Amino acid sequence: MASQGTKRSYEQMETDGERQNATEIRASVGKMIGGIGRFYIQMCTELKLSDYEGRLIQNSLTIERMVLSAFDERRNKYLEEHPSAGKDPKKTGGPIYRRVNGKWMRELILYDKEEIRRIWRQANNGDDATAGLTHMMIWHSNLNDATYQRTRALVRTGMDPRMCSLMQGSTLPRRSGAAGAAVKGVGTMVMELVRMIKRGINDRNFWRGENGRKTRIAYERMCNILKGKFQTAAQKAMMDQVRESRNPGNAEFEDLTFLARSALILRGSVAHKSCLPACVYGPAVASGYDFEREGYSLVGIDPFRLLQNSQVYSLIRPNENPAHKSQLVWMACHSAAFEDLRVLSFIKGTKVLPRGKLSTRGVQIASNENMETMESSTLELRSRYWAIRTRSGGNTNQQRASAGQISIQPTFSVQRNLPFDRTTIMAAFNGNTEGRTSDMRTEIIRMMESARPEDVSFQGRGVFELSDEKAASPIVPSFDMSNEGSYFFGDNAEEYDN
C-alpha cells in the first residue's frame, strides 16, 4: 500500500469516517454492505422474486439502478423543472426478469421514488447511507470498465484509444464523492478537466460571474484530485501550473494530454476495490451473516471469500459463452479491467482472455432483445487465490505491452514486471518541450526514458491461498515475461453508450 500519510484510507472515504482504527473501519464497511443486503432482500420480497430470480444479476442491476435514481437529487430536480413526455419524475423502474413456464419473461416495473427511498433508509437504520449508494455506483463503473473500451470518449477529448488503461471510473457520476474520486484513473480526471476547458473556450461566460466562481472551485478541486494521483514531483508541479492558470485554454489542454500520456509509464495511484452486485450481499445477509459484527474490507480476502460461497446467475444470449460472461463479471467484481492478464489468470486459476476474444456482450439486456431465446446460467466467480488490492500504480518500471492497449494499471499487489510499449508511448511525445512547463516536461520525458521494462514492481508481494486469511504465506508467482498482458488488445469491444 502506498503510505497513507495525511490521506484517509478508502474504507474511511467509503464510510465518510473520520480517523478510525482498522477494526472500526471493518465494522463501518460491514455496516454499509449489510445495509445493501437488507435493502436487496426487501426489494425481492416487494417484487415477489423467487430465490433464483433474486440471484439473477440482471435483476440486481435494475434494483441497484432504481435506488441510485431515487437518490439522484440533481436529476430529480431537473426532471421536475423540465417535464418530458412519458417520463414521470417521481417514478423509477426498469426490467425485471421472471421464469414463467420454463421461459424467461421481461416485466417492466415502476415504483415511486419516495417508496424506494423509504425501503433503502429502513434497511440502513434510517440513514441515507450515501456510502452504500456510492458502492453500487463503483460496481456499475467497474462493470462498464470491463465491458467497454471507451474509444470515442478518448478520441473526443484528444487522447489515444490505446490509453484505455487510464480510464478507470470514466462512467462514474460526478456525485460519487471521495470514494469515487479515489477509483478514477488519470485519464478519467484528464477527460473531465478537458471537457471543462473546452467549454470555457467555447463559452465566454463559463468562468464568469457567480456560476463561474463555482465552476472555478470545481476545476481547482479536480486538479488537486489529479495532482494527488501522480507520484513524481515534476508531474505534480505541472498540475500546479494547470490549476493556477488564470484562464484555462489550449496550453492547459496540451499540458493535460501530455500528463495523461506520461501516466502510461509514470503511473498514478488509483484505488481498486472489489464492489459486488447487491444480489451477492442480499443472500449472505439472508443466511444470517452479520457483516457489521464480522467486519468487512473491500481490499482484502473478504470479497473473494464471499464470491467463493455465492451463487449468481445471468441471462445468456443464444451465441454467448457462459464462461466468457463469467470472466467479464469476475473482472468487474475485482475492479480488474486494466490489470495484467498474466496476473489475473494466476489468481483466477483459469486463463483470462483479452476482451476481443470473449464471445459475450454486456450483462444488460436491451429492451428490444428477444426473450424467447434467452437461457440462463451460473456465473463462475470463484478464484484459485486471493491478493491484496493496490492503491498505487506500482513502481515506475515497465515491460512490453500489446498493440491495442499500451500499458496497464495494476489492481493487485503482486510481484511482476509491468508491461508497456515504450516505443509507441515515446513516439507520441513530439519533443515539444517549450513553453512555461518546459523544464517539467524535459524531466518527465527523462524519467520515462530511463524506466526499464525488466524491473520488478511490488517486490516480494504474492497471492494467498483462500485458507490464508491473515495473509501469512505469500506465494510469489513467476510470469512468462514475453507473454501478452493487455485486456483490450487489438480490440473490438462495443462502445459504451450512456
Rank of each mutant, 00 (worst) to 15 (best):
P303S: 15
S326W: 11
S60T: 14
D127N: 10
D302R: 09
N76Q: 12
P474T: 12
A260Q: 01
N59Q: 03
E465N: 01
A234L: 01
A2L: 00
Q399R: 13
A22I: 13
M43N: 02
S383N: 13
D160R: 02
T424V: 15
E252A: 08
G37L: 08
I408A: 07
A471H: 03
S28K: 01
A27F: 12
I33D: 05
P354T: 11
S245E: 02
F71N: 10
S28R: 10
F412C: 08
E244K: 12
P410F: 02
G30I: 12
K48N: 07
D16I: 05
L47M: 15
K77P: 00
E465L: 00
K236V: 01
P318R: 11
E115N: 05
H82C: 14
F39V: 15
A2I: 00
M239W: 09
G126K: 09
A146Y: 03
Y78C: 10
S245R: 08
R195V: 14
M159P: 00
I63R: 01
T151P: 03
Y78A: 13
A427R: 07
I41F: 05
I119F: 12
K48W: 04
I36Y: 06
D128G: 05
E73A: 15
H135W: 01
R293D: 13
R118E: 02
I63Y: 01
Y296W: 12
Q149C: 10
N368Q: 14
K7F: 02
I388N: 04
I316F: 07
E380A: 05
R65T: 07
M32P: 03
V414F: 05
E339S: 00
L328T: 10
M222K: 12
E375C: 06
Y496I: 08
K236H: 12
P410G: 05
Y281P: 02
N205A: 10
R355P: 00
R400F: 00
S274T: 15
R452K: 14
N211T: 13
N59T: 10
S287L: 07
M331T: 09
L172S: 03
S335Y: 09
M426L: 15
G180N: 07
C44H: 05
R389M: 11
T433Y: 00
G295L: 05
V343P: 02
P318T: 09
N430H: 15
